[in-house]
Design a binder for these strands. Structure first.
Length: 267
DNA sequence: ATGACCTCCCGTGGAGGA
C-alpha cells in the first residue's frame, strides 16, 4: 500500500506532470494540495482515465485539496475542519480508503509574520490539533498527509538562520507542530530517516533546486497502529527536476499489510 | 533590503505563494 502527498501548485496547469508521475509512481492513494481550481474545474475525467477515483474540495484561484484512490472512489467523510466558517478556505478533506481514514490538509502559509495571516495559521493549526485528538480517540488507522507549511527542526531547512522570522519556521509554529505530533503521531519521513537531510520543497528562485536549498514541509503523520506498518518513506526528488513542475516534490510512504515495526514506548 | 519565479484571474498587472 503506497500513499503519496503532492502539492501540485495548480492541478490544471500541472496536469501533464501529475499524470506522468501517477503513471510512473503508481501510488494507491494520493493527497493533493493547492488545486487552485473551483470544484467544476477539477480534471476528474483525466484522473479517471489514469485509473483513479477522487473526491475533492476546490476553490477558485487558491488552495484546494483532493484525495485520489486507485481503482475506486474514496468514501468522503469530511470537507473542512470543525469550526471552519461558511465559505472558508478549502484546506482539509478526508476520506475512508482501504480501511484507513486519510486526512489531506493544506495548512496556511502564515506569512508575513507578524500579522493576521500568521494568527490565522496558528488558529487553523490549533483546530487541526483539536480534531486530530478526536481522530486518535477513535482508535482506527489514520494518516494525516499534506503540506503543513512548517519545518519541524533545523535539520529540515537548508539555512535555518535565514528562516527564524518566517511563518514556516517561527517557534510558535514549530511548537504547534510538536504539540500535534506528541499526541501520539509518527512523522513517517523522519522516523525512517533520523538525522538525514530530506526536503520536499525548493523555491523557484535562485536555482534553489540546483543548489539543494530546500525545505521539508510536506509530512505524513501516522496514528500508532499505522506506524507499525511503516516500511518505507521517500521523496520523489526527480519530479522537481521536470519541465513545468511544481515547487514541491511528491512524497510517499509504503505500508505493509501486517505489523513490521514495534510500537514506540513512551518515556 | 530587494527581488528573483510561477500560478491564477476577465487579467493585460496584481495577489499569493514559501
Amino acid at each position: 500500500m503506497k500513499i503519496a502527498t503532492y502539492n501540485v501548485n495548480g492541478v490544471n496547469g500541472r496536469l501533464d506532470v501529475l499524470l506522468r508521475w501517477l503513471a510512473e509512481a503508481s501510488p494507491d492513494i494520493v493527497c493533493l494540495q493547492e488545486l487552485k481550481a473551483p470544484d467544476n474545474k477539477f480534471p476528474i475525467q483525466a484522473i479517471e482515465q489514469a485509473g483513479y477515483g477522487a473526491v475533492w474540495h476546490g476553490q477558485k484561484s487558491w488552495n484546494g485539496v483532493a484525495i485520489l484512490s486507485k481503482g475506486g472512489e474514496p468514501l468522503l467523510t469530511r470537507k473542512g475542519l470543525p469550526g471552519d466558517f461558511e465559505a472558508s478556505q478549502s484546506r482539509y478533506i478526508e476520506a475512508a480508503v482501504a480501511g484507513m481514514v486519510i486526512g489531506c490538509l493544506y495548512l496556511p502559509n502564515g506569512n508575513p509574520y507578524p500579522g493576521p495571516k500568521f494568527e490565522y495559521k496558528l488558529e487553523w493549526f490549533n483546530r487541526l490539533t483539536d480534531y486530530a485528538a478526536e481522530l486518535l480517540e477513535l482508535e482506527v488507522p489514520v494518516v494525516l498527509a499534506g503540506d503543513f507549511n512548517v519545518m519541524p527542526t533545523e535539520l529540515d531547512v537548508y539555512k535555518p538562520e535565514r528562516w527564524t522570522d518566517d511563518a514556516l519556521f517561527r517557534i510558535e509554529v514549530r511548537e504547534a507542530y510538536w504539540r500535534l505530533v506528541s499526541q501520539g503521531w509518527t512523522d513517517a519521513l523522519r522516523e525512517l530517516h533520523p538525522g538525514e537531510r530530506i526536503y520536499t520543497f525548493w523555491d523557484y528562485f535562485r536555482n534553489a533546486f540546483g543548489r539543494d536549498a530546500g525545505l521539508r514541509i510536506d509530512h505524513f503523520l501516522l496514528s500508532p497502529g499505522v506506524a507499525t506498518w511503516l516500511v518505507k518513506a521517500e521523496v520523489d526528488r526527480k519530479v522537481r527536476g521536470w519541465e513545468h513542475t511544481s515547487d514541491h516534490a511528491p512524497a510517499w510512504i509504503e505500508l505493509s499489510d501486517r505489523p513490521i515495526r514495534r510500537r514506540k514506548h513512551n518515556g
